[in-house]
Nucleic acid binder design. Structure first.
Lengths: 333, 333
DNA sequence: ATGAAAGCGCTAACAT
DNA sequence: ATGTTAGCGCTTTCAT
């Protein structure tokens, strides 16, 4: 393992001072063309790379952002992460990734460590369980999908998206629309549920919705079990279900299949998120896609942008309906 | 944004020298209990966190590893990443994540940057296209799924896994088994294909396999299109297909569904990878699961472990067959 | 056991 | 325009 070349080696070989080398490296204007060329040449020859730790120590920053995500196995988060990294890289930043594993209490520790490592800011995608970030002073923090006082907040318009999804079902002629909600402690789940309730109370003010909404985790098993309850229950059989996540929706598809209930002929299903998988299942899942790219770019730019952003105004992006094969008008029964 | 507390602040407040504080922080034995307690107290009070950049500059390392992954939207990679981060975190390390976006040429640049940032090593999951890492000297590099001279190599036993998968089909009574291979330039794809060929030539030495193998990308569309070719083609209709990835296999499922070919009654399908999605589709996909956790842990430990590992011996872990619903004996036609 | 001091490699302020 | 130099915050000899 050979010694790394330092700025001093370059200076010596090029016959200039280290100050000049530094100026060349940092594109400072006041260096004559001739010297600049010479230095650049030596740099190339020696393969000099400025030491990031030294730069970081000196400048107090190191062109790095941190990203905290609950679980990459959730395809939505994976895509978000992928996009954030892409955006950051494009702007010359690296990303330190940390998973909170859905443990709210570990989030604070992770942020602390990230700060210690001099990240320029962190994108926090909070776990479901509610959390109070104690003393997030001195951290540039952007929160996705949940508002935390004093920090910018970027998210999809979950409520409007849910509303549009349910409206779609209504426009198809459905009345008996069930809602598979997320976990009760999730902000996102609550917003989507509100969208559902908005539409239902507007169109069917007399209907008793209570039996139609079931809280369950955002995953496949949650959807499957919730659907089982809905489909086997003694309550009125729904003709459509609005699932609060695509994985849940896929669970519903499965539950329907197991009961020989044809989708969409006997049951319409609409999901939420727009994960790649939604297009792969059979039948293709109609879903409300989140604007992942916009969210990722916005969150990243908020961190990297020089100007302090107004933290009080949330950055909300609209979802888009992706029409596939899992929704149809109700059969005349 | 208040000034960060430095080791000097702590020293002053505790009435000791910075050397002593440093010794306390680093658990150096030669500090009296009394002083240690006092210092610790001040540290807690001031919330002192040693500056990572300074430590890194001084020690030449910073408890960070780099991970380069082609694309997190591939669920297998996402899971790998998740596990690597978990393992690293457990051992007190952070991870710098970078995506190569399947661009082989960007891998070198990413590694270079990672080195500049003083990572202790990098886990490289190479993109499909073959790459020569030029001059990877001075980097602790662990390569997943492909051998690069001079660096440890950890992978699933793709060939044996493929062999076992195809054997499973054979044991069910299948003869006409097609293989959806990966892209031609992929090492992993080649290994899996070899496993298939191994079994076919052993059991059916006279069969002309050529028409049964089709090269296609590792994704859903690849599988779907390849299956379309196989199912609509003029060649002899296969009764089973071995797909080299789960996403391809799901594409096959879809192609079969669209043609009203029942799986597994009329066509058996087996996948490879064991991604979470494989259990969610209908019918549940029988697949050869990769030992993701073992691979992730091994790769991480190789980087973090103090001892230089013998780079020449590959670390290979066995796959396991996950039986679900997509395979059955061929129908007697 | 503890303090003093020398840097780690770099940037920027200050000379010239 | 360029060289010189003082640190950034820490770890680690080297004295004591």
């Amino acid at each position: 393992m050979k010694q790394r070349t330092t700025i001093r080696d370059v200076a010596q070989k090029a016959g200039v001072s280290i100050g000049t080398v530094s100026r060349v490296v940092n594109g400072h204007p006041s260096v004559t063309e001739a010297r600049k060329r010479a230095v650049l040449e030596v740099i190339a020859e020696l393969g000099f790379q400025p030491d990031a730790a030294a730069q970081s120590l000196r400048r107090g920053t190191n062109h790095t952002i941190g990203v905290i995500i609950p679980d990459l196995r959730n395809p939505y988060f994976a895509e978000l992460m992928q996009r954030i990294e892409l955006r950051a890289k494009t702007r010359g930043y690296s990303v330190l990734f940390a998973s909170s594993d859905e443990q709210a209490d570990s989030e604070v520790a992770l942020i602390t460590d990230l700060v210690r490592r001099k990240v320029e800011g962190v994108v926090l995608v909070p776990s479901n369980r509610a959390v109070t970030i104690r003393n997030p002073e001195g951290v540039r923090l952007v929160v996705v999908d949940r508002q935390i006082a004093g920090h910018p907040f970027v998210a999809a318009d979950h409520r409007a998206g849910a509303r549009a999804a349910v409206e779609h079902l209504v426009s198809l002629g459905h009345r008996h629309i069930a809602c598979i909600a997320g976990p009760e402690n999730s902000y996102v789940a609550a917003e989507r549920l509100r969208g559902y309730v908005d539409v239902m109370t507007e169109h069917f003010p007399d209907m008793d919705i209570a039996d139609y909404v079931v809280y369950t985790p955002f995953n496949y098993d949650g959807g499957r079990e919730a659907a089982a309850g809905l489909l086997d229950g003694r309550g009125p059989m729904p003709t459509a279900v609005f699932a609060s996540s695509d994985t849940q929706a896929i669970g519903v598809l499965r539950a329907a299949f197991d009961r020989k209930i044809a989708v969409p002929q006997q049951l319409s299903v609409i999901g939420f998120d727009g994960i790649p998988m939604s297009g792969l299942v059979t039948p293709g899942l109609t879903t409300m896609a989140q604007p992942v790219a916009q969210i990722a770019d916005c969150a990243t730019d908020l961190l990297i942008g020089k100007d302090g952003v107004d933290a009080r105004e949330p950055f909300i992006f609209p979802c888009t309906l992706v029409l596939r094969e899992s929704c149809a008008p109700p059969s005349r029964a």
